[in-house]
Simulated assay, not measured.
Amino acid sequence: MSTQSQGFAGRDPSAAPDAAQLCELRPGVYAWVQPDGSWWVNNAGAVSGDGETLVIDTCATARRTHRFLTALGDVTGGAPIRWAVNTHQHGDHTYGNSLLPAATVLIGHERMREGLRTDPIIDGCPAFWSPIPDWGRVRRRLPDVTITAAATVHVGERRVDLLHPGGPAHTTGDLVAWLPDDRILFAGDLLFAGLTPLVFMGSVTGALTALDWLAGMAPEVIVPGHGPVLAGGEIDRVLDEHRRYFQFVLSEADRGLARGATPLEIARDARLGEFADWADAERLVLNLHRVHADHAGHELDLVAALCDAVTWLGHPMPTSV
């Protein structure tokens, strides 16, 4: 089966910044949902009350972040953004940080801060993606405050818990924003709703463990890092899909390791089955590289992993950023 028939469907290449919407989940709690949710096109959010606002993630480009912050200002009456938090280091959630007001206190996990500090892609995106993203007028802006496990921010009367899953998952420095009184969870990239999950800078087994951690909060609404907002039975469905996908990755990796195959060779032999229609299917290669690196006890070779993903796909990874 070719990579083309293995599920490069499901993407909307015409998705544009003006397709994004600010959704009010509860009074003063907002999700910024950007279709099509594929490479570099993330979700963000905000909590506002008593004349102040907490922003949860920014966007990859200056244009997209400007639209988010403008829409947010319209519904909050221009309430000052007192705090912002990054759920992890990746540029789709962080490159727009520099568009936040100078007075905003930016919060992140200590490993997230280091990851963004050393990230070269903000200085110029390599040709692994097409079209090559143009971030616009952004600069590297790092968290002012770092945490290792948990912190709480009070936005008016509303409590927002910033929590680390306890180990590597999507990355080594993930945070979620949990509103316990509203039962709303901003999960960052611990969840991708309807798209292929990505854990090559974290851990496949850790990501599996994190799913149970998320479920244990018993959220009523989840804002995933990519894809539509989830509620009710959709939450269990997406959690179960992630479990099956990560178990699939581990199973394919185990079989490949037993015969000495490379991540690219394993991916070429794999059959995606129920995951074939998810966008960004090439992430299988990246996730397999993560398992191989962990098995061998060495650092993941990021460039080699991305090269193999492009080779498997047969062309650069498409993005509508």
Rank of each mutant, 00 (worst) to 15 (best):
G273I: 07
G49E: 08
V223I: 15
R268D: 10
H242E: 02
P197N: 08
E220V: 03
R244K: 05
A210H: 07
S2K: 00
A103G: 10
C125F: 08
E114I: 04
D119C: 10
D308K: 13
H315F: 15
V41Q: 15
E299I: 08
L106G: 07
Q4I: 12
H109T: 04
A281C: 00
G10H: 09
V303E: 14
D57P: 05
D74T: 14
A60Q: 00
T58Q: 05
A279D: 01
A16P: 01
N42H: 07
P168D: 11
G45Q: 01
V29W: 03
W39E: 03
L211C: 12
H242D: 09
G256P: 06
W40S: 00
D212R: 15
H315V: 13
A215M: 00
D119P: 02
D280F: 04
R255P: 06
G10N: 09
G194W: 09
A149T: 13
A193S: 09
I184R: 10
L163N: 02
R255S: 13
L179I: 06
I122H: 03
D189N: 13
L116H: 05
P17D: 02
L195N: 07
Q89E: 13
G216M: 13
A31I: 13
R259L: 02
T87Q: 08
V249M: 02
R82F: 06
S38G: 11
P263R: 01
N43A: 10
W32G: 01
Q4F: 12
G167N: 02
P126T: 12
A253W: 04
P120Y: 03
A210M: 09
L257T: 01
L190M: 15
V291C: 14
D18T: 14
L288F: 09
S48Y: 04
E265S: 07
D189Y: 09
T311D: 11
P197R: 11
S14I: 12
R271S: 10
D294S: 10
D74Y: 07
A46L: 06
V229M: 08
R64Q: 14
G49R: 09
T104V: 07
A151C: 05
A16L: 10
P27A: 14
D181A: 15
G78M: 06
A149Q: 08
G91Q: 12
L313Q: 15
H170G: 12
H315Q: 15
R113S: 09
V199L: 09
D189V: 04
V153A: 02
L162E: 00
P180T: 03
G256K: 12
M317Q: 13
L272A: 11
W213Y: 11
D12A: 05
R141I: 14
G91Y: 10
G73K: 11
P13Q: 03
D161Y: 02
T65H: 13
H315I: 04
E157M: 05
I121M: 08
W135C: 10
S38C: 14
S203W: 02
F275L: 04
A293Q: 04
T70C: 11
Y30A: 07
V291D: 12
S320T: 15
E252A: 14
V155M: 01
E265R: 02
A309Y: 01
L99I: 00
A79S: 12
H109M: 02
A296T: 08
V249W: 04
L25D: 09
H109K: 00
N86F: 10
A44W: 01
V285R: 04
G227Q: 01
L163E: 01
A169L: 07
R141D: 11
L272D: 10
Q247M: 01
D144Y: 11
D161G: 01
A279F: 03
M317G: 03
I122W: 00
L208Y: 07
